[in-house]
């Protein structure tokens, strides 16, 4: 790696003498294989007909390094997630948190749709729900998106008899659906109605990229076991935000690492503790002592007026 960067600096110097400042950062590894097309043409002239590409994709390793792998490898790792044992290890040094800004939510439900799509969930199983809340008669109603709160003292994990649901070092609470015995004690123990159960054989899509089960993707789904929002660890591993965060058109969701004090809603990155301080962040039902990883910003100074209508495209249940 250092060899490469030296080479590059040398060349730059000879070309323009302007790159003294340049230090190669995380993208250095990317250079080695970048632009396969051009190199190929330089070495042997062929017609520029479409052919197999040497696509390379950047991947973040568990320790936060960016490495480049061939796309054929990616396909498997990207969609399959880590093995059952590896999934129990959190990404080192991270403590993932989410901040949900209630003042920006207008129940567009894009988050939910994206979640349903990426986890291959049917209509009736919703891992992410948007509740219509009204604290008392006088109070104004507001929309409250609620994923799994990934508690630091998770009551669901406490009661699991077989270690099927577990708390990772990076704060995520995941489920190993190949171990779950389906006793549903975790569902009874969760105060936030987060968990859902596969009452019958789940309908699985045929065109799935990977058929190997991983707790990081929660897929393929298993009959007779419990599932829930997983904060998309397969995305986090790639250095990408969870699907609900990127899907939200209004920047309701901030997601990030509390250890480096920053959260990002896809557009802007802000300091996590400053955000909570400035906007009076709170956690839902703090009194229970479950210490959720999800914080809420109160629904004051709304971006949108509250409209109590079924959102577009939402199917009405009879």
């Amino acid at each position: 790696m250092s060899q490469k960067s030296e080479d590059l600096e040398k060349k730059d110097d000879s070309a323009s003498g302007r790159r003294k400042f340049l230090k190669l950062g995380i993208l250095t590894a990317g250079l080695t294989i970048a632009g396969g097309g051009l190199q190929k043409v330089l070495s042997d002239e062929k017609d520029p007909e479409p052919k197999e590409s040497g696509t390379k994709i950047k991947v973040m390793t568990p320790d936060g390094k960016l490495v480049e792998v061939d796309s054929t490898h990616i396909k498997e790792h990207d969609h399959c997630g880590a093995s059952r044992d590896e999934s129990r290890q959190g990404i080192p040094g991270k403590k993932y948190v989410m901040v949900i800004d209630l003042s920006r939510c207008k129940n567009a439900l894009k988050c939910q749709k994206s979640c349903q799509k990426h986890h291959f969930l049917p209509e009736q199983d919703k891992w992410l729900k948007v509740y219509k809340m009204q604290d008392n008669e006088e109070a104004s109603p507001y929309w409250m998106p609620k994923p799994c709160l990934h508690c630091d003292k998770p009551p669901c994990v406490k009661v699991c008899p077989v270690d099927a649901t577990f708390k990772r070092s990076d704060g995520l609470v995941l489920i190993d659906n190949e171990r779950c015995i389906g006793c549903r004690f975790c569902m009874a123990a969760c105060p936030y109605s987060t968990r859902t159960f596969n009452w019958d054989e789940p309908k699985q899509p045929d065109n799935r990229a990977c058929n190997e089960y991983s707790p990081e993707t929660s897929n393929p789904r298993k009959k007779g076991t419990v599932e829930k929002c997983d904060f998309c660890p397969d995305m986090l591993k790639l250095g990408k935000l969870p699907h609900c965060v990127t899907a939200c058109p209004n920047g309701v969701y901030y997601f990030g690492d509390a250890n480096e004090d920053s959260v990002c809603n896809g557009d802007e990155t802000v300091r996590f503790r400053q955000l909570l301080k400035d906007k009076a962040g709170y956690r839902y039902m703090e009194a229970l002592g479950t210490e959720p990883s999800v914080y809420y910003l109160p629904a004051s100074n709304r971006l949108f007026p509250f409209k109590d209508a079924e959102p577009e495209g939402e199917e009405k249940h009879s």
């Binding site: 270690d163 779950c180 596969n198």
Partner: peptide, 26 residues
């Protein structure tokens, strides 16, 4: 009968967690 996966009942003994009231109950 209430279990979703009675075929995995042995997990209670293979991976039992003493923290769980279900294990105490068993």
């Amino acid at each position: 009968v209430d279990m979703g996966r009675p075929d995995r009942i042995l997990n209670m003994f293979l991976h039992g967690r003493i923290q769980s009231p279900i294990v105490w109950d068993v």
